[in-house]
């Protein structure tokens, strides 16, 4: 086999970055932290002639549901709440399973990881919608839509989650296979 140390400095050669998991966790935590104000702060500030309305993500979705637009409400809830939360859970699960092993087969985890990374960028569509609305409805006094602070927080959350997914080394999923697949040493050799 090859050497396990570096020829120059003598440090052990590893095939995985030991800090990658840490990085994934860090980004993951930032994303979670950013996600909290994204839900608490208002996402959109609608200002018409006589009133000013600001709504959070969930609040807006619920209001849509109350006004009968249930489909859109579901879409918003799924897209803005469900998916980011699912991503958080997924990355956390993958990161934990990389260290501690999991019951699911590596194939499944690999698939999960691919899904997370694929749809990661699409979460930005929320922010995109807010940006389009804000830029379209700018009738100064009569009607005005401004993005609230939650949109910034939400964007940050999505970015952090993306970075987190990127930082996770998927080969780690497969690292345990050899250990799992290696038969036990004290098995009788024939």
């Amino acid at each position: 086999m090859g050497t396990a140390t570096c020829g120059r400095c003598g440090s052990r050669l590893v095939s995985r970055d030991p800090k990658s998991l840490g990085r994934a966790w860090a980004w993951w935590l930032a994303g979670v932290l950013a996600y909290i104000p994204a839900n608490l702060w208002p996402m959109l500030r609608t200002r018409t002639l006589w009133q000013e309305e600001s709504s959070t993500i969930i609040g807006g979705a619920l209001e849509l549901w109350r006004y009968g637009n249930m489909g859109i409400s579901v879409i918003i809830l799924v897209a803005s709440v469900g998916i980011p939360l699912a991503k958080f859970f997924a990355i956390a699960y993958l990161a934990l399973s990389a260290r501690n092993g999991a019951r699911a087969s590596p194939g499944v985890r690999m698939r999960l990881y691919e899904v997370v990374e694929y749809i990661g960028r699409w979460s930005m569509i929320d922010v995109f919608v807010v940006a389009i609305l804000a830029s379209l409805v700018q009738l100064n006094v009569v009607a005005r839509i401004d993005p609230g602070p939650a949109s910034l927080a939400f964007a940050l959350s999505v970015i952090f989650t993306m970075l987190s997914a990127q930082a996770f080394d998927p080969r780690m999923i497969w690292d345990g296979i050899e250990a799992e697949a290696r038969p036990p040493r004290d098995a009788p050799s024939a």
Binding site: S11, P18, K19, G22, R23, A26, W27, L29, A30, L33, A34, I36, P37, L156, F160, L163, A167
Partner: peptide, 23 residues
Amino acid sequence: ARRSLWDRVSVVWLVPLAALAVA
């Protein structure tokens, strides 16, 4: 070799810390 903190912990951890601090 003794791994320093920076070897073990990535710099990225500053981000959540900052977020926390901001919050």
